[in-house]
C-alpha cells in the first residue's frame, strides 16, 4: 500500500476523509450492482446452455434432411427453386434495462410461404427439410436473444468487477493509509508545539527567579 503524495495539512485531511466516504459508498453501490448482474447472468447462462444444446441437436437433423434433399436434385434446380423466396422474416427488438446494462429482446414476425417453388422439379424431401428448418428457426431466434444478453451482461460484469476490485483493494486502502499518516503527522506537530511552549515557559520562569 502506497500512501498518496499529499502535504500533511488539516485541509488535505478533511478532503481525504470526504473522499474515503464517497469511495466507500461507491464501492457499496457497485458491489450491489455486481450482485444484481450476477444473479441475472447466472439465470441467463443456464438457459443459454440448454438452448444451445437443443439447437445443436435439432439443427444437425435439419441439415441432414436438407443434404439428403439436395443430393436427390440437380444443383441448378435446387438453386433456382430457392432463388426467390416469398417468405419474409421481420424482427422487432425491444430492450430492457438490467442494472444499467441494456439487453435486447427479439420478437419474430414471419409471413409468406416457405414452399415457394414448383413441385415438378423438386423432391418431397426438400419440403420436409425446409419445414424442419422452419421448426428450428424460432429456437434459433431465442438462442440469439439469450446469447446476446449473456454477452452484454458478461462485458458489463467484467468492468464492474474491475471497478469494485480497484476500489476495494487499491483506492480505499490508499486513502485510509494517507489519512492515518496525516493524523499521525498532525499529532506529532501538536506534541512538538506543546513541548516547545513548555520549554519557553520554563526559561521565562528561570529568568524571573534569577
Amino acid at each position: 500500500m502506497a500512501k498518496l503524495n499529499v502535504k500533511p495539512t488539516r485541509m488535505e485531511l478533511l478532503n481525504l476523509k470526504r473522499r474515503v466516504k464517497s469511495a466507500v459508498r461507491g464501492h457499496k453501490l457497485l458491489k450491489d450492482k455486481q450482485d444484481g448482474l450476477m444473479k441475472t447472468f447466472m439465470e441467463i447462462i443456464q438457459e443459454a446452455k440448454g438452448t444451445r444444446r437443443e439447437i445443436e441437436a435439432s439443427l444437425g437433423g435439419a441439415f441432414k434432411n436438407f443434404m439428403q434433399a439436395s443430393s436427390m436434385m440437380m444443383p441448378e434446380m435446387l438453386e433456382s427453386a430457392l432463388l426467390y423466396p416469398s417468405a419474409k422474416v421481420d424482427l422487432s427488438v425491444t430492450t430492457r434495462n438490467v442494472m444499467s446494462c441494456v439487453v435486447p429482446y427479439f420478437k419474430l414476425e414471419q409471413e409468406g410461404d416457405i414452399l415457394n417453388y414448383g413441385y415438378l422439379q423438386t423432391s418431397g424431401e426438400l419440403d420436409m427439410a425446409l419445414s424442419a428448418f422452419q421448426e428450428v428457426f424460432p429456437l434459433m431466434i431465442k438462442l440469439a436473444e439469450i446469447e446476446k444478453q449473456a454477452e452484454r451482461l458478461a462485458a458489463e460484469l467484467e468492468t464492474t468487477r474491475r471497478r469494485v476490485n480497484a476500489l476495494e483493494h487499491k483506492l480505499i486502502p490508499d486513502l485510509k493509509e494517507t489519512v492515518k499518516f496525516i493524523q499521525m503527522k498532525l499529532a506529532e506537530t501538536e506534541r512538538s508545539t506543546v513541548v516547545s511552549v513548555m520549554r519557553v515557559k520554563a526559561m521565562i520562569e528561570a529568568q524571573a527567579a534569577a
Partner: peptide, 30 residues
C-alpha cells in the same frame, strides 16, 4: 448492442464452439 452475432452449427455438425463460447462468457463475467 446490435447486431447479435451468433454462431450456429453448420451442415458438418457441431464443433463444440457454441458451448465453448458460453464458457468464455462465464469466465469473463465471473
Amino acid at each position: 448492442a446490435l447486431p447479435a452475432i451468433i454462431p450456429v452449427p453448420g451442415p458438418k455438425g457441431t464443433t463444440g464452439y457454441g458451448i465453448r463460447r458460453i464458457g468464455k462468457m462465464v469466465e469473463q463475467a465471473v
